[in-house]
Design a protein around this nucleic acid. Structure first.
Length: 334
DNA sequence: CGGATTTGACCGGCGC
DNA sequence: GCGCCGGTCAAATCCG
């Protein structure tokens, strides 16, 4: 999305009785309407009321115009933020590809071959996001994946407390832990989870602390959920520390894992292959990334809404209706 | 008491 | 063929 082609204007039809393709000035049209109205009634009292209505309408139109302008500015700023994030993602992806070509010896083994798919960003179960799917990754060498090219593997990095021994990643789904192992190249144990929301859901998840950075949890997801996203959702807490005994049934959810939300590539926690926090992430302390993510989501919603002609027309109609209703109410008071 | 978690045993793939 | 290692199973345990 580019702010240069996204029309952030709400396009409100702020002038009642004025057709969109009418080139006449709104003031002129209002005068015409006012004059005709007065002529129709043919008395001075009505003229006075019309002038009063004109003042009220003009005042409210000014207010709405100011609000419209503010919204436009906010949307423009949000689009600029998005573009910045998008460029950073692109740089990270390029870096990832270069680093994958110079993989170390650990990647010779089958399990470590997953590192070829060292995906940056958020998990996107059920979606074919460019950053989380390995279906088209030609370098991927895992035999099991060759047998099942539909198996999607995603990886997400989550900030956690270094002293926190809990291997829990809140992603909104319900998981049942079925195993834990200590792997060779990492002193921290690896936890194995299966999706327990639906009995037939094949999705599995592995959670392990990063060997280089104990403050990071690495969650690897395999497969696609064959069910809807659990409705019980909480606030965005992707980077929030989680206590070990926290009940996994009450997992909070980054909205990005919603199956219905596709193509959300910028994530609050971007990491490079060596688990160093990206410049974007490093500049933002963990506690400030959640609001950033929320801001991003607001932008997504605002963008989609403003591009929807039905929404803008409905909004314009609602505002016009409110103004006219307000005017009628004032008339009723008199 | 039922569901979730823990943890040791087991299985299969891979490298030597 | 053997050993290493990651992944899974299932009985035991925990917990609300």
């Amino acid at each position: 999305m580019d702010s240069t082609w996204v029309n952030t204007s709400l396009g409100l039809n702020l002038v009642p009785f004025c057709r969109a393709n009418d080139s006449r000035a709104p003031a002129t049209m209002q005068q015409e309407f006012e004059g005709g109205y007065a002529q129709l009634q043919g008395n001075a009292l009505v003229k006075e009321e019309a002038a009063s209505h004109h003042d009220v309408l003009a005042e409210e139109l000014n207010t709405v115009s100011v609000e419209n302008k503010k919204l436009t500015e906010m949307l423009t700023a949000l689009c600029e933020n998005y573009n910045t994030l998008q460029s950073q993602v692109g740089e990270l992806m390029t870096t990832q590809q270069q680093q994958n070509k110079t993989s170390d010896i650990y990647r010779k083994r089958k399990a470590d071959s997953e590192d070829y798919n060292n995906v940056i960003g958020l998990i996107s179960p059920g979606t074919n996001t460019d950053t989380s799917s390995i279906s088209d990754d030609k370098e991927y060498s895992c035999k099991r994946l060759k047998e099942n090219t539909n198996l999607k593997i995603s990886r997400v990095y989550v900030h956690t407390d270094a002293s926190d021994t809990g291997l829990i990643v809140n992603d909104g789904y319900q998981w049942r832990k079925y195993g834990q192992k200590v792997t060779r190249d990492n002193p921290s144990p690896r936890a194995y989870y299966k999706c327990s929301f639906a009995p037939s859901c094949p999705v599995k998840k592995k959670v392990q602390k990063s060997a280089e950075n104990p403050c990071l949890l690495v969650a690897t997801y395999e497969g696609e959920h064959n069910h809807m996203y659990p409705e019980k959702r909480a606030e965005v807490t992707l980077i929030a520390p989680v206590s070990p005994k926290q009940n996994q049934q009450l997992i909070t959810s980054p909205i990005s894992v919603l199956p219905s939300v596709a193509k959300i590539s910028p994530a609050p926690t971007f990491l490079s292959d060596d688990n160093r926090i990206s410049p974007n992430s490093a500049m933002c302390p963990p506690e400030t990334q959640a609001p950033t993510f929320q801001q991003f989501l607001v932008q997504q919603m605002a963008s989609s809404l403003t591009k929807d002609p039905n929404f803008t027309s409905a909004l314009a109609a609602a505002i016009s209706g409110r103004i006219s209703g307000h005017t009628m109410a004032r008339n009723g008071e008199k």
